[in-house]
């Protein structure tokens, strides 16, 4: 009797086994790809960008801004020497409403100028002045954010620091470099590029 491959269960099982290995391998690769894709999507905030999940802004700033508090904070910053022309300030209660986050938009087109910054970098200067008065403590400001719109109307960057680090740099307990490390933010690189290129073009 001649045994062909069809009759030998061993051989065909072996062949099937290899196919199984290949399938298993492909599934593994697919799962790894899928998991990597999901991880990347979460890191890069794709669901929030697509509107599937609410963004951090929508999750955190759910309450009506404390406009009266913001008015007082801005008046106190002005009294402390900050040029408040071109600055709009909103104070958002967060959590149970006893803490808040102050967000300033600085618009250079509306007449804002840093003026004398007393050796501090521009963000530290603005943030320390915004935290200068007693109202920030009364309304529980725990963080300050600054959004800077340049002379060409582009939003150049957004920076934020905790109230503790702002107080520390104001009191000299933190160096300029340590403060920069404590600042979180986002830079609009295309806007910066355009500004730099325009400046270079003007020079030529």
């Amino acid at each position: 009797m001649v045994y062909t491959q069809e009759h030998t269960g061993k051989k065909s099982r072996k062949k099937g086994g290899c196919r199984g290995c290949l399938k298993f391998g492909l599934w593994c690769v697919l799962i790894v790809f899928l998991l990597s894709g999901i991880a990347a999507a979460l890191v890069f905030r794709v669901p929030q960008r697509l509107g599937i999940l609410p963004s951090a802004t929508k999750r955190v700033f759910t309450q009506t801004p404390d406009r009266a508090g913001a008015k007082k904070v801005l008046a106190e910053a002005r009294a402390a020497g900050l040029n408040t022309q071109g600055i709009s300030l909103y104070v958002f209660p967060v959590g149970d409403g006893t803490k808040s986050i102050a967000l300033a938009t600085i618009d250079e087109r509306k007449g804002f100028s840093f003026g004398q910054t007393a050796g501090l970098d521009p963000m530290a200067h603005v943030m320390t002045k915004l935290m200068a008065g007693p109202t920030v403590t009364e309304i529980g400001v725990e963080r300050v954010g600054v959004h800077y719109i340049g002379e060409n109307g582009a939003q150049f960057g957004s920076f934020t620091a905790s109230a503790d680090s702002i107080r520390a740099v104001a009191a000299g307990r933190m160096t300029k470099e340590q403060f920069i490390s404590a600042v979180d933010g986002d830079v609009n690189i295309p806007a910066m590029l355009k500004y730099q290129l325009d400046a270079l073009t003007k020079l030529q």
Binding site: V43, F44, R45, R49, S55, A56, T57, K58, R59, V60, F61, S88, Y90, V94, I101, L103, T105, E142, R143, V144, G145, H147, Q155, S158, F159, T160, D184, G185, D186, N188
Partner: peptide, 21 residues
């Protein structure tokens, strides 16, 4: 690309609030 997160919701919210403002 303008993506990325600090891992802290309040920090992210403060940084990303430009459009909302």
């Amino acid at each position: 690309t303008g993506f990325g997160t600090t891992g802290d919701d309040r920090v992210d919210a403060a940084v990303q609030a430009g459009t909302m403002l």
